[in-house]
């Protein structure tokens, strides 16, 4: 799990990943991934996000190593700012724009699992509804119509906001997507904040448990 200056959900993600295995932080200036089996790129405001969300983190040394890892088929999950970083780094399709109302919104949302054919949703069931918090100001997923049609066609839309829950104006209600290899997944809501009934919900655990399924069907 890379830690950028300005990351803020990395400890939450570390805790969540700890439910299914050992987890550790990777410093943003390092290229060494220390032999991990999977990478979570956490939420937050990497490098302050003053240029554009995720823009600078996408260029960091650790992201070079993560890109190689992803290209070799390693499972990578980008959450919120991490999703923005992976899009900025070209590892995931589309872009994340300012919310339609240009405000930061923090809200529990219902997500629908659209495909279980990824490293991060293998343990879920298609159509399963997950109660997971979202909190962001730049989470409106967008892609040019050709790209959108292509990824829809190839079943790369992994999560959608459930009916009526698309608060940020994302194209086609898209909340998360995957790459062609289906090993890299990004989503705006925070599954790492839905791993404990005490703090609200355990619905996010299914993403982390999916890793334990090993090979996808």
């Amino acid at each position: 799990m890379p830690q950028f200056p300005g990351s803020c959900d990395e400890v939450d993600a570390l805790l969540a990943a700890g439910h299914v295995g050992d987890a550790e932080l990777l410093w943003h200036r390092d290229r060494d991934l220390k032999g991990v089996d999977a990478v979570v790129v956490p939420g937050g405001f990497s490098y302050g996000d003053y240029l554009r969300a995720g823009a600078i983190a996408g260029l960091s040394p650790v992201m070079d190593a993560i890109a190689d890892f992803a290209r070799d088929g390693g499972p990578v999950l980008g959450i919120c700012n991490g999703f923005q970083v992976l899009c900025a780094a070209g590892l995931l399709p589309g872009a994340l724009l300012q919310n339609a109302d240009r405000r930061f919104v923090s809200r529990q949302v219902q997500l629908s699992v659209e495909t279980t054919e990824t490293d991060w949703t293998a343990a879920a069931t298609e159509g399963q509804l997950l109660s997971i918090p979202a909190k962001h100001q730049s989470g409106r997923w967008w892609a040019p119509s050709e790209l959108h049609a292509e990824i829809a066609d190839q079943d790369q839309i992994v999560f959608r906001y459930a009916a009526g829950g698309n608060f940020n104006g994302s194209l086609d209600d898209v909340a998360g997507v995957c790459n062609e290899g289906r090993n890299v997944v990004g989503l705006m809501p925070h599954p790492e904040h839905a791993v404990d009934a005490l703090t609200g919900s355990t619905d996010g655990l299914v993403l982390f448990r999916s890793l334990l399924q090993g090979a996808r069907a």
């Binding site: 923090s106 909190k135 904040h193 703090t199």
Partner: peptide, 13 residues
Amino acid sequence: FEQYDSIVQSRTV
């Protein structure tokens, strides 16, 4: 309060 993150750090019960 929806404009504020109330859950980061995973302590908020």
